[in-house]
Write a protein that binds this DNA or RNA. Structure first.
Length: 790
DNA sequence: GGATTGGGCTTGCTC
DNA sequence: AGCCCAATCC
């Protein structure tokens, strides 16, 4: 992805070239149509103002998209520079670029194949000066945003009103995704409400601080681009004129701001806006690809109506349905179809394949999250000893917290793995420190990163000194960074003043050299600031690891420069700000991939494990109270299932550790939706029904499926359904009354006989530690363990 | 000014 | 169980 970022103007001049659109040139070459099924072929060939490709999972949409682009170029209907393709991740962008390249060679360079965010950054940098930003703006990540809002809340004393950084930032983000700005939001808000009033003021503060810091947050990147286009029609017109073919992948996950951006870009170009135009131009041709069954980003503002209403929205739109799946076995697809069929408000679509049933889905129920993880590890050993590569295997989970047990067991089993996303490299404190040095250099207006490093390593610049500097800056209307430079004018101790002067000189030295090699800048900053020395001298073994991480970052910057000759500091910072979790995937890694179900979208693996298929986890507890929540959770499960090519494993546990507590877990309702004959249960899920006291709370209200986890402790059998194991439910167990003490002999349904070593915990959470004669030591939650006293 | 400690909160997903 | 923050102590 060497040329994805930066300010290079490569290809932009070609806007001035005459458009090759007109009477169609040559026919699309046959090699671009080879091996395509009829709807795929049509999706490649169709020409018109708007095209919707409804692409079921694994139906070859990337192939269709790349061939469509290649076709446009090969027939000379478009120059590369007239193509804008929006993908969901940088990795997908790089892949698409490569594939188009391999189809038609050199002619492919000059296209914009980018994510929404990266395309918008590029536009904003180019036009920054036009609307009052400096080109060197930096991007605040969610951590930065929280830190800033936290400070603002404190300053206003708004915390007493119950406003939290997380809450406020989520609300601002949501509003920006809906394309509101402070003023438009204010007009719709009820300002009688003091909470809304306080929020509004915070938002105003926040935007002002961002602007002062010459920074944007993630959501700004999209919405500000839209505002820019609306405020400056002649700027918008340039891009409209340039991009004649716009293609958007994962369209089901676009939000209002992204939709508006697409709308803006596909408007006709008029001579009123661009006087040197010979005649008005129609809007760009728009192709969107998506699958409403895979819409899983509502929490980020994704609006499923963008895709469901597409044909009504864009005049002359044509829709093409791709249902043949080239990825998975029929068993996996049947399970996926059955599950998603339970979402009622969808356009019917059934995936099929002609490649055979394949292996049955494997199901497993562990006694604990650890036990479940052990199953995953055992199966991976089994699969790899059968010749499968580690890199063809993935383990999915709903929440990042589930990685702990998995990692522990994988390490013990010596299985190489990589956690994709989660606690990211760039979130480590020492990496953030190092990055803050770089940001301070690149964007001197930003006080946030300066504050972070001002006293790291220790220079004796404490809160009091910082406050004095800030006061001086406010008094003179200058930035904090400028105040550093004028430290002589502030009454401070000679030692502190000298330290500040040194720091200011170091930062200024590199700020004056914006085109320097980022790796060199970083290395010098870390060494001359004393940062590396401090870590090196520390007796703390953790600091040795931190030092390694920082050195790793230096290596990353060096590698960046190697891949992007001439790439400057701003380019590097932009790239790192916009990396997505899925970008971390490295096929050559030879490692099992661990990731959330969300991160898994768009990927595929020979063998897939979906873990924690339990109520309250999948579907997640919080989704129960959200409109459309349970349906979205089902789509998430569907996305997970359809990632698998050959083997699918579904696992759950009977107890789940959470917040350091162990709680009983209930099998997910989604399991019941899979036809029983598709699943080979190694260990059947048992239905543990909640105690009467819990019955009324937290029950799901998603259609008629309540029976499965009903709160009634009714001794009658559960209503029989087509359920997977409704008719094979083992005994309803409740050992609450069972009293165990060390020395007791017990018998366990699966582990055989053993002796109780210790009992801990109280009430429903009592745990017995048992030495079993055959299988060794186990911890059991007494309430639900299948045991009897001998 | 800086280190240590204890309490409260968290874990829902992400560009 | 871990992280963050405030209070407390040096």
């Amino acid at each position: 992805m060497s040329d994805l970022w930066g300010l290079g103007d490569e290809g932009f001049d070609s806007v001035q070239r005459p458009s090759p659109i007109g009477p169609r040139g040559d026919a699309v070459p046959e090699h671009l149509l080879e091996g395509l099924n009829p709807p795929q072929r049509e999706a490649v060939l169709h020409r018109g103002p708007a095209l919707l490709i409804v692409a079921g999972a694994g139906s070859g949409k990337t192939r269709v998209l790349t061939h469509r682009i290649a076709g446009l170029l090969a027939t000379r209907e478009a120059w590369p520079s007239q193509i804008l393709a929006i993908t969901f991740t940088n990795k997908a962008a790089a892949e698409m670029r490569e594939r188009v390249h391999s189809l038609i060679g050199e002619e492919a360079s000059g296209m914009w194949i980018r994510t929404f965010h990266s395309a918008c950054v590029r536009i904003l940098r180019r036009e920054a000066e036009e609307f009052g930003f400096k080109q060197s703006f930096t991007i605040y990540d969610s951590g930065d945003v929280r830190a800033l809002i936290k400070r603002l809340i404190k300053e206003r004393g708004a915390d007493i009103q119950g406003l939290t950084p997380g809450g406020v930032s989520a609300r601002i983000s949501k509003a920006k995704n809906e394309l509101h700005d402070v003023d438009s939001w204010a007009r719709t808000a009820n300002l009688e409400n003091p909470l809304d009033q306080a929020f509004l003021e915070l938002w105003r503060d926040y935007d002002r601080e961002l602007r002062r810091a010459n920074a944007f947050d993630f959501d700004d990147l999209i919405s500000q681009t839209v505002f820019l286009f609306r405020a400056f029609p002649h700027v918008a017109a340039q891009y409209r004129k340039r991009f004649r073919h716009i293609l958007v992948d994962e369209y089901q996950d676009t939000n209002a701001a992204q939709y508006a951006l697409i709308r803006e870009l596909t408007q006709p170009v008029t001579r009123a806006d661009l006087p040197d135009l010979r005649s008005d131009l129609p809007g760009a041709s728009l192709t969107v690809v998506g699958d409403s069954d895979q819409s899983i980003y509502a929490f980020r503002g994704a609006d499923i109506r963008n895709i469901t209403d597409f044909e009504r929205d864009f005049a002359g739109a044509r829709a093409i349905l791709l249902e043949q799946n080239y990825r998975s076995t029929q068993n996996i697809l049947s399970a996926a179809n059955a599950v998603i069929g339970n979402n009622f408000d969808r356009r019917e679509k059934r995936l099929w394949t002609d490649s055979g049933d394949g292996a049955k889905i494997v199901g497993f129920t562990g006694y604990s999250g650890h036990d479940e993880a052990q199953f995953v590890a055992d199966e991976i050993v089994e699969l790899t000893s059968g010749g499968m590569a580690y890199s063809d295997i993935a383990v999915f989970y709903r929440t990042n917290a589930q990685t702990r047990a998995l990692e522990e067991v994988l390490i013990r089993t010596a299985i190489p793995y990589k956690v994709i996303g989660g606690t990211k490299f760039y979130e480590r404190a020492e990496i953030k420190d190092a990055m803050a040095y770089l940001i301070t250099v690149a964007n001197p207006a930003d006080p946030l990163s300066l504050r972070r490093i001002m006293n790291v390593p220790k220079r004796g610049i404490g809160p009091a000194t910082e406050a004095a500097l800030q006061a001086f800056a406010d008094e003179h209307g200058i930035t904090l960074r400028d105040a550093l430079r004028r430290v002589d004018e502030i009454a401070l101790g000679p030692k502190v003043a000298a330290a500040i002067k040194d720091l200011a000189a170091l930062l200024d030295h590199w700020s004056e050299r914006p085109e320097a090699d980022p790796g060199e800048v970083l290395r010098d900053l870390l060494s001359r600031s004393g940062y590396t020395d401090q870590l090196r001298r520390s007796p703390d073994p953790q600091d040795a690891a931190r030092l390694e991480n920082v050195e790793e970052l230096v290596a990353v910057t060096r590698e960046y420069r190697r891949q992007n000759p001439g790439g400057n500091l701003i380019d590097f910072l932009t790239e790192t700000a916009l990396v997505a979790a899925a970008d971390e995937l490295d096929d050559s890694g030879g490692q099992v991939s661990l990731m959330t179900l969300h991160t898994a979208k768009g990927l595929e693996f020979d063998a897939v494990f979906i873990t924690g298929v339990e109520e309250d986890l999948l579907p997640h507890r919080i989704s129960a109270n959200e409109p459309g929540g349970p349906a979205e959770e089902r789509r998430l499960f569907y996305v997970g299932i359809t990632r698998a090519r050959q083997r699918l494993h579904l696992s759950l546990a009977m107890t789940r550790a959470q917040f350091g507590e162990v709680n009983p877990a209930v099998p997910s309702r989604f399991l019941e939706e899979i036809p029983a004959e598709l699943v080979d249960w190694r260990t059947l899920p048992t239905t543990m029904r909640p105690a009467p006291a819990q019955r009324a709370v937290g029950r799901w209200s998603d259609g008629p499926r309540e029976s499965f986890v009903t709160g009634f402790r009714d001794p009658k059998p559960l209503p029989k359904g087509k359920g997977t194991f409704a008719n094979t439910i083992t005994e309803v167990r409740d050992n609450s009354a069972l009293e165990l003490s060390p020395g007791d002999r017990i018998r366990h349904k699966d582990f055989g006989e053993g002796r109780v070593q210790a009992v801990s915990g109280a009430g429903a959470k009592r745990i017995a530690e048992v030495q079993f004669d055959q299988v060794g030591r186990k911890r059991l939650l007494i309430k639900i363990a299948p045991i009897e006293l001998l």
